[in-house]
Amino acid sequence: MPRVCFTLQVDPARLAEYRARHERVWPEMLAALADSGWHDYSLFLRADGLLVGFLVTDDFPAALAAMQARDVNARWQAEMAPFFLDLDHGAADRAMRPLDEVFNLAAQLAAETGETP
Rank of each mutant, 00 (worst) to 15 (best):
A69S: 04
F83L: 07
P117I: 08
A13R: 10
E79R: 06
S36R: 12
D35G: 10
A91T: 13
L99V: 12
G37D: 03
L64Y: 14
R24A: 05
D100M: 04
R97T: 03
E79C: 03
A66K: 12
A91C: 09
A63F: 01
A32P: 13
L8K: 05
F83G: 05
L15E: 02
G114A: 09
E115C: 08
G49E: 14
A65W: 00
M67E: 04
V56S: 04
V56K: 07
D71K: 06
A63T: 02
D71R: 11
A91M: 06
D88P: 00
R97W: 03
A106H: 04
P82H: 05
L55S: 07
D58H: 12
H89C: 13
M67R: 09
M29E: 08
H89M: 03
Y18M: 13
V52D: 01
G53F: 01
F83H: 06
A78E: 15
L43C: 08
L45P: 05
L8T: 03
A92F: 14
T113D: 15
V52R: 03
R46D: 07
Y18E: 12
R75A: 15
L51F: 03
L15H: 03
A20E: 11
A13Q: 15
D40Q: 13
H22W: 07
Y41L: 15
M29I: 09
R46E: 07
L87V: 05
A92S: 14
P2T: 03
Q77V: 11
L51R: 09
R94H: 11
A111W: 08
A95S: 15
L99K: 00
M67Q: 07
L45A: 11
V25T: 05
P27C: 13
R19W: 06
Q108D: 10
A110S: 15
R94I: 09
D40M: 06
P27T: 10
V25W: 01
E17M: 06
A106K: 14
L55Y: 02
E115N: 14
Q9T: 05
M96A: 11
L30P: 02
P61E: 01
E79G: 02
M80R: 10
P82S: 05
P82G: 10
A78R: 09
V56T: 14
M96I: 04
W38K: 04
R21S: 12
D93F: 14
R21W: 04
